[in-house]
Write a protein that binds this DNA or RNA. Structure first.
Lengths: 123, 123
DNA sequence: TTTATATTTAACTAATTGGTTAATTAACCG
DNA sequence: CGGTTAATTAACCAATTAGTTAAATATAAA
């Protein structure tokens, strides 16, 4: 995986991993704590791998406590992703203006669909 | 790809596709318009595929205009992802509190690292 | 030292992804 | 019609991903 942002989004593109983050948002948990809800669906090595993906993306940190590996959520990494999204906020908040504009073009053109209406020539 | 949110994050986990969204944030563009900056790095069919990924994730919509396929950004899909992130905002905004708490535990335990300190037994 | 618990690593596999080239479809233009 | 531009589809391939089972490592406890 090339850049950091791609790595973060890729890590988030899996429901198991998002559920793990949700669990960690309630507080620190060991690998087996985190694993418990998923052990009907997958084995422990699969869990380890998911956690590794989250760790490499910087979304969690793993420490050592005897034979346990307590994991914690790391908000910072999520912030980078959130910051990227922020630039598009206007595109989902403008919905009313956009709908308005759209309706205007529709009623204006009426779009008969089989006609030549010579738009957008070459450049 | 299972759920919608995973599909959206997966679509965002690629710098080419994010660049395409950036381009579309400046306004509608045809496939070849969008392709232009990438044609040194990849071929047109690759572009088509990337656009298909974005389209399936609902991030863009493609229409028909003569032999062109104008694409537009669809803010809605980004909103679902942004809404998901929103629940974690507290984890990157609390940084000061968290640092404070962390420093407190560090100074309290002093952590000599070779010692038995019998924490976290079974349950 | 043996045993038990927690977690990881290794080796393998099936499915998906991101790209390619070559051929095909769609729509316009002279 | 025949040619040109725009875009997609098909067939293929290499790399990555998400899972598996079996073996290994780390730490504590008896």
């Amino acid at each position: 995986m090339q850049d950091h942002l791609s790595q973060t989004f890729a890590a988030l593109a899996d429901p198991t991993r998002r559920a793990m983050l949700a669990r960690l948002s309630q507080g620190e948990a060991s690998v087996s704590d985190i694993a418990k809800p998923f052990l009907k669906e997958m084995t422990l090595p699969a869990i380890t791998k998911h956690l590794k993906v989250l760790e490499k993306a910087g979304l969690i940190t793993k420490t050592r406590e005897a034979q346990w590996r307590p994991c914690r959520l790391n908000g910072e990494a999520l912030k980078t992703a959130a910051d990227w999204m922020e630039q598009y906020r206007v595109f989902w908040e403008e919905s009313l203006d956009r709908l308005d504009a759209y309706l205007k073009t529709v009623t204006a053109k009426k779009k008969p669909k089989g006609k030549t209406h010579g738009r957008k020539r070459k450049k």
